[in-house]
């Protein structure tokens, strides 16, 4: 057996990378966690491709439903949207939902099987660790879903909306993803106390589908309900980015991003507080 070669002292406050700022060192570790998860998800391209087929099935159903709706209405526009716009809206909304990570399930599972011990004893933020893992996992699936769903709708309804709006949509989607992460992480942190969170996650997903505009864009809602729904975080998660995609507009973008940042601050703050409270009560199965 060869002796382990001596190396410079282990870091305590930056160690070998002490010349970098704390923010840069933090960014590097979360970037590395993100990249490692990206590599792990991409290790199974056939799985990613197979999962992407589900959006094709959903969109195929939506295409027939909405085509029938527009034919019945006898108008090229309903609630301000053409059939093509509605279908592209649904592609984006479905992509966001189907690519979402499941940090609640991951946290609850880690509490149940005890592997949370490893997630808590490393020099990083527990929540940002899950954020980075979730982002790495989502990105691969998001690309797969967007390509598969987009190809079908392009074939049926024509080309996607103006590409000049896509960078704005990307920003809005990133913030939407973060709000959803915060909401689901909050549910996951319940697992520190309850261990099982599947029921809470199920309720959240159904509320998100309804008030986020996954099945029906909020434009089709009655005025009163629409006014309420538009102010909830669910709309900033699904409806906002998807609607921006079909009608890109700087004012709409500014309004959307402002709301998203406010909700993100609130949800992020709540998640951080829930973590601090939950970790004190944590018990770990198996000792």
């Amino acid at each position: 057996m060869t002796p382990a070669a001596p190396v410079p002292p282990a870091p305590g406050t930056g160690g070998a990378l002490a010349w970098r700022s704390p923010a840069a060192r933090s960014a590097a570790k979360y970037r590395a966690i993100f990249a490692t998860q990206l590599a792990q998800t991409a290790a199974y391209p056939a799985d990613v491709a197979a999962r992407s087929l589900s959006i094709v099935v959903f969109m195929w159903v939506f295409i027939h439903l909405w085509r029938a709706t527009y034919e019945a209405a006898g108008q090229s526009q309903v609630a301000g949207l053409t059939l093509a716009q509605t279908l592209w809206y649904l592609v984006l909304a479905e992509t966001i939902v189907l690519s979402k990570p499941r940090p609640a399930a991951a946290i609850a599972e880690a509490v149940k099987d005890g592997s949370i011990a490893y997630q808590l004893n490393k020099p990083y933020s527990f929540l940002l660790y899950h954020f980075s893992v979730g982002l790495g996992d989502s990105l691969v699936r998001m690309v797969g879903n967007l390509v598969a769903g987009g190809a079908l709708v392009w074939w049926v309804a024509g080309p996607p909306p103006d590409p000049r709006g896509w960078p704005l949509v990307l920003v809005a989607m990133t913030l939407a993803w973060a709000i959803d992460f915060g909401m689901v992480a909050l549910i996951g942190l319940l697992g520190f106390v309850t261990e099982e969170v599947a029921a809470f996650e199920w309720i959240y997903s159904k509320v998100l589908f309804l008030f986020g505009g996954l099945l029906i864009p909020l434009d089709f809602f009655p005025d009163g309900l629409r006014t309420v729904a538009e102010r909830l975080p669910f709309a900033y998660t699904l409806y906002g980015p998807a609607r921006l995609f079909v009608t890109p507009d700087v004012d709409r973008f500014a309004h959307l991003v402002t709301g998203q940042l406010l909700w993100l601050a609130l949800v992020g703050g709540l998640a951080a507080a829930a973590y601090r409270a939950g970790v004190r009560r944590l018990t770990i199965n198996g000792g």
């Binding site: 282990a10 870091p11 930056g14 160690g15 070998a16 990378l17 060192r25 590097a28 570790k29 970037r31 590395a32 966690i33 490692t36 590599a39 792990q40 290790a43 199974y44 099987d113 005890g114 592997s115 011990a117 490893y118 490393k122 020099p123 990083y124 198996g286």
Partner: peptide, 26 residues
């Protein structure tokens, strides 16, 4: 911790080693 894994299951061990290098700021 016993049989609870910290290595990333679907990746080669060297990937986890390199990740830990970043996490421990080496």
């Amino acid at each position: 911790f016993g049989q609870r894994p910290q290595l990333w299951y679907h990746l080669p061990a060297v990937d986890t080693f390199q990740l830990f290098g970043k996490i421990y700021e080496l």
